[in-house]
Nucleic acid binder design. Structure first.
Lengths: 249, 249
DNA sequence: AAGTGGTCTAGACCACTAT
DNA sequence: TAGTGGTCTAGACCACTTT
């Protein structure tokens, strides 16, 4: 059988054919309540290909944001994305609820540690100064989509580690108990991969692509008070933002 | 030989070992003028592994943004990232020059076409209306880092296709010849993969991750005048943005 | 023509999840 | 314990780039 029926120089590789053949499987899995795709060996037999080749096609679909995997559990069709408006600055639970989705938060650790170099730089501290670090996993409709590390200046938030950090919004704690309101935020966005720890917190695997959102919050007086490192499953969000351009520099 | 000397449940897989072994190679390649890594088969012999396993490690490094590939040419160490301030709204050449880098633009096509559904939606047109589409590839220091499709409302910019679109900045054409200034921009950001066409324009390959930046420009009166679909090699940019949060919705 | 990465085969064993 | 995905082996041929 001829792999390329057209005159293009590059023959359509098998993976491309597979991508087309997989689409109906994806669509029918999207109808199922668990959104699960058939087992790899099943698809491999059905599509008459090798496991490595099939997996390459699946990884393509994952990179496109159409499917995702849970470590050693299987492949699933991605639910609709959450809209994440960078300038709205909504607390996570509010953002999720406002879109008729269900939010959950798991607290992994909350402790005082030495500031890593990049955190110290962003908060204007010297390296080795101590900060509060809060690590959480956040879920939307039961799916783990976000791994986030918060780093707080302890002088701004004494005793904050004693609150129930799985339930409370940090933003609300800031204003309600510390009288601090966020006056300016700066973001840094990049595509990257998860650390081993973050991957296991998201039930996923080393290689999957993620969207990193780094945020530094400043108070009303322009002082950096905390920063976040957010790692989102990239298929889970639509980052948006609307603004009038700054006229100079 | 024991692959895991600690008590962790997950044994460190070979790919992790490879990643560590590859770092010195990456560092020494970063010194070379062409920034090129050794050939895969050479590294594979040097590191005593298989090509598939080696390639998996390389793809990891690519996903981390440390190295990149050019189709069938080889692997290279990524140069320092370009800072891309979303709110600065600088024209490409200016943004690049201001960071002491060298910018180039290649014009691929400039023609009138029917608006695709998503473009029509973003510009507030009905599907099938005609628009100007300009497709360009942009380079930084000789490296192809950006594939961008512009879609323009023809009623705003009659005759714009006759300008030298490889040299001229669209933003400047807008204000100089059409008296239009951009009053508001809205962005949508996502991680995705390249189409076949975009991949070949960037000398890269189907699977490589890219950062997509979609922008809709509005004029002083709030009317959508054009939109871009930008596809950046994800290791080429640092997206940044600083703003005061909006107080309600 | 030689060398490069891109793709593919046909298996295998392992760690972990689900039952 | 059976089934799943994760990892790995040892090759092969092909399209394209470079010499």
């Amino acid at each position: 059988m001829n792999r390329s029926s057209s005159v293009t120089k590059t023959p359509s590789p098998r993976v491309n054919r597979l991508l087309a053949l997989l689409l109906p499987l994806v669509e029918s899995a999207a109808q199922r309540s668990d959104r699960r795709l058939p087992a790899e060996r099943e698809m491999m037999a059905h599509l008459a290909t090798t496991r490595i080749t099939l997996r390459e096609a699946l990884i393509q679909l994952e990179a496109q944001g159409r499917i995702y995997r849970e470590n050693r559990r299987g492949w699933f069709v991605s639910p609709p994305r959450l809209r994440y408006d960078l300038l709205a600055c909504l607390p996570f639970h509010e953002m999720v609820r406002s879109q008729q989705r269900r939010a959950e938060t798991l607290l992994l650790t909350a402790e005082e540690v030495e500031a890593p170099a990049d955190v110290a730089r962003r908060l204007g501290l010297s390296q080795g100064e101590r900060i509060y670090r809060i690590i959480r996993t956040r879920l939307v409709d039961g799916r783990r989509v976000l791994y986030v590390e918060h780093h707080l200046r302890p002088d701004c938030f004494p005793g904050i580690l004693n609150f129930d950090l799985a339930k409370e919004s940090l933003t609300e704690l800031y204003s309600r108990h510390y009288g601090i309101r966020v006056g300016r935020v700066s973001y840094e966005l990049a595509t990257t991969v998860l650390s081993e720890q973050a991957a296991s917190a998201l039930n996923t695997v080393r290689g999957s692509p993620v969207q990193r959102v780094t945020r530094v919050n400043h108070d009303q007086n322009g002082r950096a008070i905390d920063c976040d490192d957010e790692y989102w499953r990239h298929d889970a969000i639509d980052l948006t933002l609307t603004a009038a351009p700054q006229l100079s520099f």
